[in-house]
Measured scan of single mutants.
Amino acid sequence: DVEPGKFYKGVVTRIEKYGASINLNEQVRGLLRPRDMISLRLENLNVGDEIIVQAIDVRPEKREIDFKYIP
Rank of each mutant, 00 (worst) to 15 (best):
I22P: 00
E26N: 15
V47M: 05
Q54H: 04
Y18M: 11
E26S: 13
E64Y: 12
G5Y: 07
K68M: 13
I56S: 05
S21F: 15
N23L: 14
R41A: 12
I51Q: 00
D36G: 04
R41N: 09
M37V: 05
V12M: 00
D66H: 12
N25L: 05
E50K: 10
K68R: 15
E64P: 03
A20P: 03
K62S: 13
P34M: 08
I51G: 02
L40K: 05
N46P: 00
E64V: 08
E64W: 13
F67Q: 01
V12P: 04
R33T: 03
N23A: 15
D49M: 13
R63L: 12
D1V: 14
E43S: 11
N23C: 15
V2K: 03
I51C: 02
I52N: 04
A55K: 00
L40W: 04
A55T: 05
I65A: 07
G5H: 06
K9P: 03
E16A: 12
I22G: 02
F7M: 07
M37P: 02
L32K: 02
D49C: 08
G48V: 04
P71V: 08
K68A: 15
V47S: 02
N25M: 06
F67V: 04
R41P: 04
I70P: 05
Y69L: 06
K6P: 01
V11T: 11
L42D: 02
D1Q: 13
S39M: 12
K17A: 14
Y8N: 00
E26G: 13
P34F: 09
L45G: 00
I52Q: 04
E43I: 07
K6H: 08
V2R: 03
E61V: 07
E50R: 11
V53Q: 00
N44I: 06
E43N: 08
E16R: 12
G30P: 06
I15P: 00
I38E: 10
I70N: 09
R63P: 09
A20I: 12
Y69H: 04
R29N: 12
L32R: 01
I70S: 09
R41V: 10
V53L: 07
I51T: 00
S21H: 15
L45Q: 00
R29A: 14
K17N: 11
E50A: 09
K17L: 11
R35P: 05
D1W: 15
P4H: 06
L42F: 07
P4Y: 09
E64R: 09
D57T: 13
D57W: 11
K9I: 11
R59E: 03
L24D: 01
L31V: 10
I38V: 13
Y69D: 02
G19I: 05
I38W: 07
K6W: 05
E16V: 07
V28S: 05
E61R: 06
E16Y: 15
L32H: 02
I51Y: 00
V47D: 01
D36S: 04
R14S: 12
G48P: 05
E61P: 07
I52F: 09
V12A: 00
Q27G: 14
S21V: 15
Q27L: 12
R41L: 12
Y8T: 00
N44A: 11
S21W: 15
E64T: 10
R14W: 10
T13F: 06
F67E: 02
K68E: 03
L32W: 03
Y69W: 07
D49W: 06
R59G: 05
N44G: 08
L45W: 01
I22M: 01
G10I: 06
K9M: 10
R63S: 13
D66E: 09
G48E: 02
V12R: 00
N44P: 02
R33M: 03
Y69F: 11
I22E: 00
N46D: 07
D49I: 06
M37T: 04
I70F: 12
D36T: 04
K62H: 10
D1T: 14
D1A: 13
Y18H: 15
I52M: 10
D49P: 00
N46Y: 09
I65C: 08
P4D: 06
P60H: 11
I15M: 03
D36N: 14
G19R: 03
I52L: 11
F67L: 09
K68W: 05
A20N: 02
P4C: 12
R33H: 07
V11A: 02
E61W: 10
R33L: 06
R41G: 10
L40P: 01
L31G: 01
S39P: 15
P34I: 11
G48T: 01
V11H: 06
V58M: 05
G10F: 08
P71M: 09
G48S: 03
K6S: 07
L40D: 02
E16G: 15
Y8V: 00
P60T: 10
D1K: 14
S39H: 13
I38P: 06
R14L: 08
G5C: 12
P60Q: 09
P71L: 08
R35D: 10
F7D: 02
M37I: 06
R63V: 07
D36E: 04
L40M: 09
L32G: 01
P71E: 06
S39Q: 13
R35I: 09
G30L: 07
L24Q: 01
M37C: 10
K17S: 14
D1F: 14
E64A: 07
K17M: 11
R29T: 14
V28R: 04
G30N: 02
E43T: 08
L45R: 00
I51W: 02
V53K: 00
G19F: 10
L45T: 00
I51S: 00
V28H: 11
K9E: 03
V47T: 03
E64S: 08
G48K: 00
I65D: 03
F67P: 02
L24P: 01
D49G: 01
I15Q: 00
P71A: 11
A55F: 06
I52W: 15
L45A: 00
I22S: 03
S39L: 11
V28Q: 09
D36Q: 04
D49K: 02
K6T: 06
K68Q: 11
I38Q: 10
G5M: 07
R35G: 11
Y69A: 02
G19T: 06
F67Y: 02
N46M: 13
V58F: 07
D49R: 01
I15D: 00
Y18K: 11
A55R: 03
V28K: 03
T13R: 03
P4E: 11
Y8G: 00
K62D: 10
R33N: 04
L40C: 10
E43W: 11
R35V: 11
S21P: 02
A20W: 07
I22W: 07
G30R: 01
P34E: 11
E3N: 06
L31N: 08
G10Y: 04
S39N: 14
L42M: 08
S21A: 11
P60A: 11
K68D: 02
K62Q: 12
E43V: 08
S21R: 13
N44R: 06
S21L: 15
K17Q: 11
V12W: 06
A20Y: 09
T13N: 04
L42T: 03
S39F: 13
Y8F: 04
L31A: 02
R41I: 09
I38S: 10
N23S: 15
Y8E: 00
E43G: 07
G10L: 06
I56T: 08
E43L: 06
L45P: 00
L32C: 07
V58A: 05
K17W: 15
V28M: 07
R35Y: 07
D1M: 14
Y69I: 04
I22K: 02
E43F: 08
P60W: 12
V53G: 01
S21G: 05
D66Q: 10
L40G: 06
L42H: 02
G10R: 00
I51A: 00
Y18V: 10
I70Q: 08
E61N: 11
P4V: 15
